[in-house]
Design a protein around this nucleic acid. Structure first.
Lengths: 147, 147
DNA sequence: CAGAATCCCTTGAGATACTG
DNA sequence: CAGTATCTCAAGGGATTCTG
């Protein structure tokens, strides 16, 4: 039973600048902080695991068909893939183009807005890949500590 | 020079550089692409709506108690808040400190790793706030188009 | 081929009551 | 105060089958 270790408290507190940015994002001063929260209203419907993978894969291939996406995103079902693609299309991240051939061909690609989202996702993905060992180690320590 | 668009969309295709970054992130060449996917293994457990809000609020206040967090994150239940805090602590984003007073006081703050995550979340939040009108407009157009 | 439809099980998440 | 323990209902998501 040990409370949190003071040895790891070399925590650098967030600079004032960061707090100012957060205030701007959430508009603390505003009188409708809940209704216009950009995180809930917009980001939450495109930041789930599957949507992120879809955006990243479309970023890597320019254009992909439904079946190609399904094959590359291992484990996703047709139903979920359809749902996520619809939402991403509705919100303007991706463009869906139907070619009326037989059998029909449907292609998906990122919009310019989607590419700007891709840029942010790449930043965060590169970072998490660099630092994921920290997370894995933290999980092991946590397991030992709470055993 | 970018390849030019064809048809109605002025989509700029992703530069080669971006594809190289994506290859690195997913390690296309590797023989275990699923098992070590950083998005699924690490990012997916800290990128849900509630976790993001928790990180952002801790970023704005340095230190917050359980009740203060619950009050600020409108709509979250004690159960979900507890679950998300446990996961974020397990993965090393936040530090939980118990003060054995009566009644007990528990404080949460970001670790240095959590602050680095906060930096990325701020980038993406600022961006989505700037561009969220695009999403809202896209939704309206989509609704008209599919009605 | 690209989905739509159905079934069905698991998980998420709110509400409430209780406790160290 | 900071949770935990239940209960409950809604939503997520997998598997399968069907269709333009």
């Amino acid at each position: 039973m040990k409370p949190t270790n003071q040895g790891e408290t070399n925590v650098e507190y967030q600079p004032f600048e960061i707090k100012e940015k957060l205030k701007k994002i959430f508009e603390y001063h505003s009188d409708q902080p809940i209704e216009t929260c950009p995180i809930r209203d917009v980001l939450s419907s495109s930041s789930d695991k599957w949507s992120i993978l879809i955006i990243l894969f479309l970023g890597g291939y320019d254009v992909l068909r439904f079946g190609e996406l399904k094959k590359r995103i291992h484990g996703i079902s047709a139903k979920v893939l359809t749902e996520r693609l619809r939402t991403l299309e509705r919100d303007g991240y991706i463009i869906r183009e139907v070619f009326p051939e037989v059998p029909v061909r449907v292609e998906y690609k990122l919009s310019n807005f989607g590419i700007r989202y891709l840029d942010k996702l790449i930043l965060i993905s590169e970072w998490i890949k660099d630092e994921m060992n920290l997370v894995i180690q933290s999980r092991l320590e946590y397991e030992k500590k709470t055993k």
